[in-house]
Nucleic acid binder design. Structure first.
Ligand code: SF4
Ligand code: SF4
Lengths: 153, 153
DNA sequence: ATATTTTAAGACAAAAGAGTCTCAAAAACC
DNA sequence: GGTTTTTGAGACTCTTTTGTCTTAAAATAT
């Protein structure tokens, strides 16, 4: 898998938050219900995002979690870096240690292209952008079986 | 990681074989030594490739393993499919089950592009192609620490 | 103050991936 | 025939990822 499960869940939660009223704290429980992710697992993941300064949290009633920046200022790459780290963009297809431009393996050129296209995708898509696209096209964020349309609900 | 460890090892071994005299059986032990991969682990992986008809094996002295087809007829994708299966090209970035064109998630378009670029890379590079590139540019296939240059050795 | 709601932290368990080991089976050589 | 060399098959262990659970701490409300 390109992204870890944690990262995918983090992205889904971030998209969910970007679709909420700005500045409002959203309880993790609410998100875990809507997104069909284990509450405790999601909590752990969002704690990482909080630690990285992407989310702010607030305890107690009316508490929850919210985006620090506006959704249109957060490219997907920020979330991916916070959870999966930079390996995705530094690691190589053949998994050789110490790979680099100065001593590349035979796959380097093609892989570098591909990696760039992955980076482009993650850098040039913001949360808000995807949310808007989701609303316009009535897309879903949860599983097929869930019938729980995130956008426009 | 994009590819599993098994898949990476399988690819490295396949490149190694493509660089050997055509039709010669190469003992797995020899490869595991050269490529710095655990013999038993590599054996298990190559057994998969044999089961998939990508390799032929022969037991006993002078036995070993060899490519069924010529290296220039084997795109990387064949090895990847044999070991990691088709998930890489069917799975989605957000990991939603039942994803598809008819009911896509908001990331679909950009991810589909990226996935295509991965498929292109794997379909349009043959083993021989990479071996030639490796020879021309004196590239390596093993780790930095190993100093064990595969090509031209 | 006390009870309630929420995140924080971390122990714990289950599942998957990576790697090791043992023994069997086939082929060759003597 | 017996020994050696090799792959085949599968049990087993170790590690990482994924997921669950428990307890603490902060905030609120009554
Ligand atoms: S040289 Fe390029 S393709 Fe090879 S391991 Fe390094 S980054 Fe990956
Ligand atoms: S719709 Fe596209 S991006 Fe979304 S899960 Fe399916 S394949 Fe992936």
């Amino acid at each position: 898998m390109l992204l870890s499960k944690s990262c995918v869940y983090g992205l889904r939660a971030a998209l969910f938050l970007a679709n909420q009223e700005e500045g409002k704290f959203v309880p993790i429980r609410h998100m875990s219900d809507k997104l069909e992710i284990s509450f405790h697992f999601l909590t752990k993941i969002l704690q990482q995002l909080t630690a990285e300064g992407i989310l702010e949290s607030f305890k107690g009633p009316n508490g929850g979690v919210r985006l620090v920046k506006k959704g249109n200022e957060i490219p997907l790459i920020e979330i991916v870096m916070a959870i999966d780290g930079p390996q995705l963009l530094t690691e190589c297809a053949l998994g050789l240690p110490g790979c680099g431009v100065q001593n590349p393996c035979p796959l380097h050129d093609k892989w570098a292209e591909t990696r760039d296209s992955i980076r482009d995708m993650l850098e040039n898509s913001t949360l808000t952008e995807l949310v808007h696209k989701g609303k316009q096209e009535n897309l879903r964020l949860t599983s097929e079986s869930g019938f729980d349309i995130l956008f426009n609900d």
